[in-house]
Design a protein around this nucleic acid. Structure first.
Length: 422
RNA sequence: GGAGAGGUGGCCGAGUGGUCGAAGGCGCACGCCUGGAAAGUGUGUAUGCUCCAAAAGGGCAUCAUGGGUUCGAAUCCCAUCCUCUCCGCCA
């Protein structure tokens, strides 16, 4: 969430930036400032009251020792009155704080100045393309047919075991998953990312920390008996490692990578574009997460994009990198680059990675700070990206590399799969 | 799951109703000492909110979390969470 400081001190900039995301926040911002003024006034009044209570309570101790019972009784009555007033003020304060919080979480992150204007995915800007478009064999088919033909991914069986969107990978299909995970993790660790294997369920505090709660609650699977949530991405547990932590500047940057399965209810997205591997309820993903000094975060973002690009190249897939326009960006992001690979048999670009700088938006929720030279605390910048998500990579690999003799495995993966063809 | 013990600052640890944001130690920072270092020695060392134009300096809150008792709570009571020990179950 945005800091009160920036909302109050740079109101015009905030409003102007938010229009890039298609948000008119004028009313909300005005309300926030008004509620905050009230909050401060109540806070000050309450503090004064409490100070008097504390002082009087101390006096009572002395009076008792001196044996001045009457004076002590009088002081007790005074405190009782003050307490009543304080109780009222406390309620007011709590109400103001709650209202303030409700308003402030409605504001999305400010898009960086690099973000192109636009409302829909058509307005995204292609910043780079690479990789050769494959020449498909005559009777090329989409990946769901290939999955069946080679018996490597069983959607029906997953349906029986769990439900739609939970495929069973079999034989070389299962091995391919494991190969991709190892390949991605090795690439990431070679680039200096420290591997972690986090829990696949998180508590509500972690959900709040990265912003899944409260607004996206319906998108997560919720284990109600223990109030745990299945993670929709490794970003959640990994980023929360540094929740409520004050770092030293020398600790930064922190670069982490994690493989986890991801669980998404995808409520409301039935029907379109969900065939085969295109959209699943459970899928595997390797994530990279960084914590940076504010002055370094955009250089870090560029580095992450270059890193992911390098991996996609090694997989020999045709790809393009998009800079998302204001209207297509997520609520929390300041700047996002999406990676898409071309899935030749579907004749469709598939999003396989999203790399974002959140600046201090997430850190403000997480309370992840660092100590500056002059001993003050300041919010860090957080970034993350998929490096990479498996299913659509698999879809593209299967479709683009189908031959008369089976599906060709790209060179870089062979030492992980142990086979060259499926 | 049952029984018991416990959760205090970056860490260890004292504190069972007032003078406690909290002794002492370790660590860390800066200084003194030293040719340099170690040892020694001095000072400082939580976070959030708030008052103040700002600094200096005040105020409030925080001793797992949330409630309660009391004029006054780290300390007493209740609930929740967590940790440890034993038993049970178990990959």
């Amino acid at each position: 969430m945005l800091t009160l400081k920036i909302i109050r001190e740079q109101t015009a900039t905030v409003l102007e930036r938010l229009t890039v995301k298609g948000v008119d926040a004028k009313n909300t911002v005005n309300e926030i400032i008004a509620v905050d003024d009230e909050r401060k006034a109540v806070q000050t009044a309450l503090d004064a009251n409490l100070a008097q209570q504390n002082a009087t309570a101390k006096e009572i101790g002395l009076l008792m020792k001196q044996g001045s019972k009457d004076a002590a009784e009088a002081a007790k009555n005074k405190v009782a009155e003050l307490k009543k007033e304080s109780a009222g003020l406390e309620q007011k304060l709590a109400a103001a704080e709650q209202k303030l919080n409700e308003k402030i979480v409605l504001l999305p992150n400010l898009p960086s100045t690099q973000v192109p204007a636009g409302k829909t995915p058509e307005d995204n800007v292609v910043v780079r393309e690479g990789g050769a478009m494959p020449t498909l064999i005559a009777n090329a088919v989409p990946h769901w047919d290939l999955a069946k033909k080679y018996d490597i991914i069983d959607f029906e069986l997953g349906n029986k075991l769990t439900g739609a969107g939970f495929p069973v990978y079999k034989g070389k299909g299962a091995k391919l998953q494991r190969a991709l995970i190892s390949f991605f993790l090795d690439e990431n660790t070679a680039a200096g990312y420290n591997e972690v294997l986090p829990p696949h369920m998180v508590n509500a505090d972690s959900g709040f920390g990265t912003g899944q709660l409260p607004d996206k609650e319906g998108q997560m699977y919720h284990a109600t008996a223990d109030d745990f949530y299945l993670i929709p991405t490794a970003e959640v547990p990994v980023t929360n490692i540094y929740r409520d932590v004050i770092l030293n500047p020398s600790d930064l940057p922190i670069k982490l990578t994690a493989y986890t399965p991801c669980f998404r209810r995808e409520a409301g997205s039935y029907g379109k574009d969900v065939r085969g591997l295109n959209r699943l309820h459970q899928f595997d993903k390797v994530e990279i997460v960084r914590f940076e000094l504010p002055e370094h975060s955009y250089a870090a973002l560029d580095g992450m994009v270059a890193h992911v690009e390098n991996i996609v190249k090694k997989l020999e897939l045709p790809y393009r990198i998009l800079k998302l326009c204001g209207g297509d960006m997520s609520f929390t992001s300041a700047l996002t680059f999406d990676f898409e690979v071309y899935s030749a048999a579907q004749q469709k670009w598939l999003e396989v990675s999203s790399v974002s700088n959140f600046e201090s938006f997430q850190a403000n929720r997480l309370k992840c700070r660092y100590r500056t030279e002059d001993k003050k605390t300041q919010l860090v910048h957080t970034l993350n990206g998929s490096s990479l998500a498996l299913p659509r990579i698999v879809a593209a690999l299967l479709e683009n590399n189908q031959t008369e003799n089976g599906i060709r495995i790209p060179e870089a993966l062979r030492k992980y799969t142990g086979f060259e063809y499926i």
